[in-house]
């Protein structure tokens, strides 16, 4: 009897803890979403209410109807997409090399690639600024795609090396015996098998690029080149705080990552933890 009772109290405590935790992490997000459906007048209504009479999609209509704001999204999708494709391509080649070959300077290269992950973005910003201006890339997509790749690429190489290491070498050898080239082995056999790894790496890469703020803030200038994070910041300075629009834009701004997360949860976790647990 007492054992049963103690299990019941334990379960109650766990449920209580879980609910408190859910309020802690979920309430701010719930409030943000609810605010995006309010009119700006009612954002700070007293007493505050989660759902008000003015409930509408107006803020979303305004954000999506404004070509300037639509452009922020277009820019973000374009830059993040390009960064993801390029990172995966270059990173897969490098990961293959690290996994399948022995060569000089392998260790030194490895240390550099891991070390890059610890380099502060702010340290790179000043030289990037002068390099990008020198290369006449200031205020272009290329400036963002190129500079974002320093962090995404080093991450992708670490990840892809790890994935290729888990695939048996017999696979490549089978292709070589059949008269195929090394590159064929990589392209036709390893890449399809390593697809889950590439998806995990790709999602994380997309997310890093989608969320980047510092480089986008400094290396672009005109409003038509701004990405979503910088766009949200500009919204904050520009108007006298259209809170509902800012919240609507935030909801739209985190949708891609949220959808990626919900659909590829397993891959996402793998990508996130692999980097940290096994660096």
């Amino acid at each position: 009897m007492t054992k049963k009772a103690s299990i019941r109290t334990a379960r109650l405590l766990v449920i209580l803890g879980l609910i408190l935790g859910a309020i802690f992490s979920g309430f701010p997000i719930l409030w943000m979403t609810a605010s995006s459906f309010k009119s700006n007048m009612e954002i700070f209504a007293f007493p505050p209410r989660l759902i008000t009479e003015s409930f509408s999609f107006n803020a979303y209509k305004v954000v999506l109807g404004d070509p300037e704001k639509r452009r922020f999204f277009l820019n973000s999708y374009l830059v993040s997409g390009l960064v993801t494709v390029l990172t995966l391509f270059v990173g897969t080649l490098a990961g293959y090399s690290f996994s399948r070959y022995k060569f000089r300077f392998k260790k030194a290269l490895n240390v550099i690639i891991i070390g890059v992950q610890a380099v502060p973005p702010i340290t790179l910003l000043i030289p990037y600024f002068s390099l990008i201006v020198m290369l006449k890339l200031y205020n272009t997509y290329a400036a963002l795609v190129l500079t974002y790749m320093v962090f995404t690429l080093s991450y992708a190489i670490i990840m892809m090396t790890g994935y290729f290491n888990t695939l048996p070498r017999e696979l490549d050898e089978a292709v070589l015996i059949d008269g195929g080239s090394r590159f064929m082995a990589l392209w036709r056999v390893l890449v399809p098998i390593a697809l889950p790894g590439m998806v995990a790496t790709g999602i994380y890469t997309f997310m890093l690029a989608w969320n980047e703020f510092l480089f986008a803030l400094t290396l672009t200038k005109t409003i038509d080149m701004r990405t979503v994070p910088v766009g949200i910041q500009m919204l904050m300075g520009q108007h006298s705080y259209e809170w509902n629009e800012m919240m609507a834009m935030s909801v739209l701004g985190c949708l891609p990552v949220l959808i990626l997360y919900l659909f590829f949860q397993r891959y996402f976790m793998a990508g996130m933890t692999a980097g940290s647990v096994k660096g």
Binding site: V90, G91, L93, A94, Y96, S97, F98, R100, Y101, K102, F103, L109, I112, I113, V116, V119, T123, L124, I126, P127, Y128, S130, L131, L146, T147, M149, V150, L153, S154, I157, R182
Partner: peptide, 25 residues
Amino acid sequence: LVPFAYLSPSILLLSVLAILPIAMV
């Protein structure tokens, strides 16, 4: 040289994007 061929885009990018900027700063 084969492994370096696979690595060349990465080496090029990381030299320009990490090593050069750190020397510059």
